[in-house]
Design a protein around this nucleic acid. Structure first.
Lengths: 191, 191
DNA sequence: ATATATTGTTCATTATATAGAACAAAAATA
DNA sequence: TATTTTTGTTCTATATAATGAACAATATAT
């Protein structure tokens, strides 16, 4: 038993546990029994039982059959992605990235009401754009943040400490990082 | 849901084939050999070989290890989800939606080189914003579309026929739909 | 040119995911 | 009430996913 197996086992356990819980939750929401779901998915009860209890490492075909039987998209069974970070009520998910000129990263940021994130400076020459999709937030350089509402956007140099703060409702925003040297700080109100 | 794929893909090919092709494609894009990827993912060459060739039914832990080694989110290896529409080289995926005022929908649009999409008018009072993340594209109302490159964005009334056209490289763009009555058409160049 | 390393595939072996039967407990039936 | 059905779990047996070695074909190095 070497390290590789050890690592695999640990990883596997976490994923399996999350998947198992999701399946169990979805099944109960649909109000069907484990036996019934196994029958619908055309897999054995024992297999489904071990998957739901988290002591399994199911194959893709088995999972697919379960998703199909539950009538949910496959991704519904999976844990949150690696690129999805959750800290103190703020979730950041990488949507898209490009290695062009400039290099770009696009994130979907979700903030629970009144949550705050203080971000350390990025490298010199990083421009950050924030476009508010839902709610109201205060965002920008820590020294002079601006209040934005739905549809508004801000751009600022990412190389200084900056802040994201949701007001008293849930907030969604698209955050775009441009990696190249510039110095623009402006705010644009669309509506 | 998955029924669609069951009918369209799985009956003929199968999930394994699709997954195998995706992994192979992603690996070649990264420019690494099968042997190297197997090493990175800490799985055997033979396993990876059979997965890529479509003659396998991998476990979730194996797939997870491969996604991790490729440095892509797990979902990247899977067939497209239900919210992802593919037509003539253009993929549109719903990223986020909000029922606020205005109602907003955010999409990630990916266009293969030289692909074109002509969209029918939305309802009156829909404003559409397009932010280019990668490549160059021609976008806007069909009568007066504009050419945008990375970092540039356009807003236009969605209630007229409009067009999305990639130039000779792959294009990614964030598309935001605002559902409320207004009449703005403007273009803003950031860089 | 020869030697060495790396490519991806195929095979036998090993590890393990799934199936199927047996089981007790809880519901549902009579 | 007693009987039957259905619940989810836990075994053993079987099917198969993953491994590691052997392989020919290329590529790289000496």
């Amino acid at each position: 038993m070497n390290n590789i197996y050890k690592v695999c086992d640990i990883m596997n356990n976490n994923i399996s546990k999350i998947i198992g819980e999701k399946i169990s939750k979805l099944r109960k929401e649909k109000g069907i029994s484990l036996s019934k779901l196994a029958e619908l998915a055309k897999i054995s009860k024992s297999t489904l039982s071990s998957i739901e209890s988290g002591n399994a490492n199911p194959t893709i075909s088995t999972l697919w059959a379960i998703a199909d039987a539950l009538n949910v998209p496959f991704g519904e069974l999976l844990p949150k992605e690696f690129n999805e970070v959750d800290e103190s009520g703020i979730t950041v998910k990488l949507i898209e990235q490009s290695e062009g000129k400039p290099k770009i990263e696009v994130y979907l940021m979700k903030l629970e009401p009144n949550s705050v994130r203080e971000a350390k400076p990025h490298k010199k020459g990083v421009i950050e754009k924030v476009l508010v999709i839902k709610g109201k937030m205060v965002v920008g350089s820590k020294s002079s943040p601006k209040c934005l509402k739905v549809g508004e956007e801000i751009e600022f140099c990412g190389d200084v400490p900056h802040i994201y703060k949701a007001l008293d409702e849930e907030v969604s925003a698209i955050v775009v990082l441009y990696y190249f040297p510039m110095e623009i700080v402006k705010i644009k109100s669309l509506f």
